[in-house]
Design a protein around this nucleic acid. Structure first.
Length: 572
RNA sequence: CGGGGCGUAGCGCAGCUUGGUAGCGCGCCUGCUUCGGGAGCAGGAGGCCGGAGGUUCGAAUCCUCUCGCCCCGACCA
């Protein structure tokens, strides 16, 4: 491809709207252009990379027996009503009516469609197991898109669905998908961390997310430095920490704590660490007040709490709701609570005794709060947020670390959530009717591309791994008007292409500085420069984008050198 | 949906406080010169100042409403 013909233009300055590195570079390098919030056009360079990622995905999915299909984006709402998701999913599901006034949706995922398909096709156990996948546009009217391609409202997802006769078969297949996922990401130049994940609105019995650890990631992940434990912070847990226990429980007594409402203030005022306090956090769970008791130094994990309460409608309770139950904000007490309030305690209430807690009276707290003070505290569960430095729940000496990650993919053991809702059965070899078991597996393709840039770049631009680079090499002609030199470069361009290499040829009448800077920005793996100076040095200059070193190859052997270098750097 | 920020030429921005119908840098076009890390000179094109309404003799500038974009939070395969 001649750069003079390429439909793309670079920016000299960083686009103001972009914050994350990949967003900046994708715009700056002329790879994507925005159409609206979270909606982008892929220009030729980005599309070539996207296609390479897709090709890798297809190879790996085919390798584990996947069969590619393509399902519709436009779905009758009826299907989604069948599984209940038409109602349960919020406005990120785009709903509309067709010309005949039938309710329709734009698919944000394809469990409904594929499960319906399966129920029409599956008759016998002989057809099981199988796995279908597609790479299809997904529409999600995200409440908040951001970060360029990292989180968008219309995107490409590889989604796969496997169907099994029993759980054992799903359990056997699931690790194969896991391995295929690792291969896909590694082939794209990423080394993701697979973490145990919350299943969210998808449901199911187990799931893993594949996290690319970078600062710009939206998720918090937790991992152990000793064993393999890794989890999304949403559902991570830790082992009981070391804590102080007084030899005996004392009787509670009130202490004056004027104008000290936050745990921090109270602890400082009374001269105790926050771990010796018990704090109260109120939630509105679908209109009901829930009182959460948790040790003062630990944060409530709302995902865990929501899972425990089996609700997705969970917000901090407003003053109205508190007042209604006669609770004094800032001094709320886990003692003497009205019967109307549900109490949920984090397991950390057992990590110590004689705590400081609220007195439910402005300006007062109580000393020596113990679990025995309130017999109504019976729900003691793990709803705390894991902190960096906490002890690993799985091994002896491990310490947990927290980091940020981009969710590249997510795999689920769905079980029968959808096959139950849609009655998908098969006949076993005894002629008995059995429920089909499902797994589902997603990868965000554009997000994966963004993640590659987040990981592979420097201050001058992208540094593509060859596997997903839009072209293999960037050929620069510094002919300065010399027709001979130009002819040599044209000849080399032809030879490189004839050798099967994908070449981006900067044939523009631009100054060397512009060409070098654009080459760095585009970030193709290898830069090949032909100029008066390079000829004087003995041929053409070869420079890897990822390295500072420059090698000279004789002009008549340039193609061989290029191939050798590219092949040697094939794996990034 | 809450909180914050921003909409002026393709990109980055100034002008707005103190109203007088728009400017800078880069990019773009033409010519000449130049040619190894974003060249020089000369000439040129390009903007209903996001939109609507209002105040005013007069609005990019003041007021009201609205739309869009970005960030944080809520939310979220």
């Amino acid at each position: 491809m001649r750069l003079s013909q390429l439909f793309s233009s670079t920016y000299r300055e960083d686009p103001a709207e972009a914050q994350t590195i990949s967003h900046k570079l994708l715009l700056k390098a002329g790879m994507i252009r925005p159409l609206g919030t979270g909606i982008y056009t892929y220009l030729p360079l980005a599309l070539r990379s996207l296609h390479k990622v897709m090709a890798i995905i297809r190879e790996e999915m085919d390798r584990i027996g996947g069969q590619e299909i393509l399902m519709p984006v436009m779905n009758p709402a009826e299907l989604w009503m069948e599984t209940g998701r038409y109602e349960s999913i919020g406005s990120e599901l785009v709903r509309f009516h067709d010309r005949a006034h039938r309710p329709m949706v734009l698919a944000m995922t394809h469990e409904e469609v594929v499960t319906d398909l399966a129920r029409r096709e599956i008759k016998s156990h002989r057809q099981l197991p199988f796995m279908t996948y597609q790479i299809q546009t997904k529409i999600r009217d995200e409440p908040r898109s951001r970060g360029g391609l990292l989180r968008v409202r219309e995107f490409h997802m590889k989604d796969a669905y496997s169907f099994h006769a029993d759980y054992a078969d799903l359990d056997r297949y699931y690790p194969r998908v896991y391995d295929a996922y690792m291969r896909i990401f590694e082939r794209c130049g990423l080394k993701p961390l697979a973490v145990e994940a919350d299943t969210g609105m998808m449901g199911g019995s187990g799931s893993h997310e594949f996290m690319c650890l970078v600062e710009s990631g939206e998720d918090t992940v937790v991992w152990c430095d000793k064993c393999g434990y890794a989890a999304n912070a949403e559902n991570a847990t830790s082992r009981e920490p070391l804590f102080q226990m007084d030899p005996q429980e004392l009787d509670p007594e009130e202490v004056a704590t004027p104008d000290r409402e936050s745990i921090q203030d109270v602890a400082e005022f009374l001269g105790v660490p926050t771990s010796r306090t018990m704090k109260a956090v109120f939630y509105n769970a679908g209109g009901n007040l829930v009182f959460v008791v948790i040790r003062g130094d630990i944060e409530v994990n709302e995902i865990k709490l929501g899972n425990y309460l089996r609700t997705t409608e969970l917000t901090l309770a407003g003053p109205d709701l508190l007042e209604k139950h006669g609770i004094v904000a800032g001094y709320a007490s886990p003692m003497n609570l009205p019967e109307s309030v549900r109490i949920v305690a984090d397991r950390s209430v057992g990590w110590g005794n004689n705590f400081i807690a609220g007195a439910n009276k402005p300006g007062f707290h109580i000393k020596n709060f113990n679990l025995s003070c309130n017999p109504r505290i019976t729900d003691v569960v793990d709803i705390g947020t894991v902190r960096s430095g906490d002890l690993c729940p799985r091994c002896e000496n491990g310490i947990l670390t927290l980091g940020r990650g981009i969710e590249l993919g997510h795999i689920f053991k769905l079980g029968t959530k959808y096959t139950d809702a849609m009655n998908v059965d098969y006949l076993d070899d005894d002629g008995q009717r059995n429920r089909v078991i499902m797994g589902c597996y997603g990868i965000g393709v554009g997000r994966l591309l963004s993640a590659v840039i987040e990981v592979h770049h420097d201050e001058n631009g992208i540094i593509w791994p060859r596997s997903v680079a839009p072209y293999d090499l960037h050929l620069i002609s510094l002919d300065a008007g010399s027709e001979d030199l130009r002819a040599e470069t044209e000849k080399l361009y032809g030879e490189l292409q004839a050798a099967g290499l994908a070449v981006l040829f900067d044939d523009r009448d631009e100054s060397p500085g512009v060409k070098f800077n654009d080459a760095d920005l585009y970030g193709l793996p290898l830069r090949v420069t032909l100029s008066k100076r390079s000829l004087k040095k003995g041929g053409v200059e070869l420079k890897l984008r990822a390295s500072k070193d420059i090698e000279i190859a004789p002009l008549n052997q340039a193609v061989g050198f290029v191939r050798a270098i590219l092949d040697a750097t094939n794996l990034v």
